[in-house]
Design a protein around this nucleic acid. Structure first.
Lengths: 163, 163
DNA sequence: ATTTTTGACCTTCTTTGACCTTCATATTAT
DNA sequence: ATAATATGAAGGTCAAAGAAGGTCAAAAAT
């Protein structure tokens, strides 16, 4: 198509670049935001944009970072194959709110499937009970969903982490 | 080089150095501030910085020092009985609200003391971060305190249940 | 209408250096 | 010999500078 030399969007290029790096580094890498921004001649915040739109847990990635001198951004590719059910829970299973009963069921199932040890199940349950979440009742299910998803992301991340 | 390992912070290196020394000396040691600063080629005050940000009483350490000729800095690791510390956290240590930073410090300490495994620490951290607790900022510290105390209660219960 | 790009402003953490306080010892004055 | 003083060797404090990353909204592009 003449004249439509669709310049690839920079965000897509950065996305690919990161994914290539990840392939070369067993699914885990650290980068400097400013270095990246420099390399791609873009605003530093564009790196955040790429990360938040293309590297969410939902999409199979987890981001850790630290500010200050010696700061970094760490990107971990989650092994969604091996953590099938866990990943399903994140992307569709849980949603924006969940009752105590449902949450407890999920945790029970995680234990029964061998995703977590009994002790971890016990710990997780303690974090999402109505008693633990001290806030007006109408909000508990929302908070619970956030905490449960965060814990599940942690489990997947742990399972995916390099030694 | 993008994606290469990030440089470790000097303060972290000094922290590890001291913790290793402590392990080799039954939890108590004396050092000379200038000697340390010399060894790590840093400003003497950086030693104080490391001590105050990483060896506070909350983090499980106690510092004594003397000035003048023959001066020294003594670092003492507080080795509390496991359950004593857990109960202390419930009764006074945590209170009705706690910041993310303090909560993370407590969990790190639980791991370093051998109260919990690294994986459990990782799970616990994921449950109490600001990101996990999706509610207006001014309420996060309250919710966090409730969840953390609930998890600590679970640890105590688990410890006493399994004989 | 939606996604991407940009930039102004913010927060966190670390490093550095100038200046201060304390203590032991050596020196000096009585 | 004793008391007062000077000296130097520690460690302490604090604020400024530096080094990251984060957020948010306006502007631009699709």
């Amino acid at each position: 198509m003449i004249g439509s030399d669709t310049m690839a969007r920079l965000s897509d290029i950065i996305e690919e670049f990161i994914k290539t790096l990840l392939r070369e580094s067993e699914g885990q890498l650290e980068l400097q935001r400013n270095e990246m921004a420099d390399y791609f001649e873009c605003a530093p915040s564009q790196i955040n944009y790429v990360l938040s739109t293309r590297f969410s847990p939902n999409q199979g990635y987890y981001i850790e970072s630290r500010r200050g001198g010696g700061g970094y951004i760490r990107i971990i590719r989650l092994d969604v194959e091996k953590n099938d059910y866990l990943h399903y829970l994140l992307s569709e299973g849980i949603g924006i709110r969940i009752t105590e009963k449902n949450a407890l069921q999920i945790i029970k199932r995680l234990f029964e499937q061998g995703d977590i040890l009994e002790k971890s199940a016990y710990l997780m349950k303690s974090a999402i009970t109505d008693k633990a979440i001290m806030i007006p009742t109408n909000l508990k299910d929302n908070i619970r969903a956030g905490i449960l998803k965060s814990m599940i992301t942690a489990i997947i991340t742990w399972n995916s982490k390099k030694v």
